[in-house]
Write a protein that binds this DNA or RNA. Structure first.
Lengths: 119, 119
DNA sequence: AACTATACCTCGAAGTCCGATGTATGGAGG
DNA sequence: CCTCCATACATCGGACTTCGAGGTATAGTT
């Protein structure tokens, strides 16, 4: 019926809904998995979300940069198989912030359910 | 302990998580309530979300502009109490898109629960 | 020799949210 | 009467984000 316009609108709104969660997801993955490099973080996100909540590579590096700026993650270089790899890990601050965010995500989900009348 | 840095980080991440939902929420409110003007949309969002998921005024007008661009809402002027009011309403396309988004929000919530290990 | 996957990164385009600011009306309280 | 507040609309600049495209490089597979 609306074809093209509908696809464009859905693409945009889907993107918006996902993108606000990326920082949270990266922190969550690092908490579960410990130390990972960028590429591996993306693979883990694919695995855990069935490919639904995965930022593009460019976006992921921007997100990691931002998380580092806020001191929620830090990074170190390690030689693996003779090549340098950039590893990221949660800071203590990151762990604290993540704990609070989990609670808030729960609250947001409740509000959404109430609004949609999903229950 | 971390005080300032923690507040800044939380503020940023909270904002990111909320902001992706705004378009969806505005569409949902318009579906429930019919025709509303900008100010009233904000009031309704405050009411339904206990003040948790409410964009600033400036942001709301940008959102409405964007939704109009994607033809998910349209608007008309009406005289109320002798003064012109700009009313917004869902288009047929908006209704279709909203229906699909509801399903996706459900899926995202499931993924989040699985990741957090909340269940 | 070509390709794919792994792994890192930068850049520009387009868009977003917010805070500040501006305009204007109606009603309540002093 | 006059000031303040809630209502109601809107724009602007700043800071930031995501993405897609492109670039660099190595290791293993076909």
């Amino acid at each position: 019926m609306f074809g093209d316009a509908k696809d464009k609108a859905l693409k945009k709104l889907r993107k918006d809904m996902r993108s606000g969660l990326y920082s949270f997801l990266v922190l969550t993955i690092l908490e579960r998995e410990g130390e990972l490099h960028g590429y591996a973080i993306r693979k883990k996100l694919e695995e855990f979300s069935d490919g639904r909540l995965v930022p593009s590579e460019g976006a992921l590096y921007d997100i990691l940069k931002s998380l580092k700026k806020y001191k929620l993650v830090d990074n170190f270089w390690a030689e693996v198989g003779g090549r340098p790899r950039k590893y990221y890990r949660l800071t203590e601050l990151g762990r604290e912030v993540l704990a609070e965010l989990k609670g808030e995500i729960g609250e947001i989900m409740l509000i959404l359910k109430r609004m949609e009348g999903l229950e």
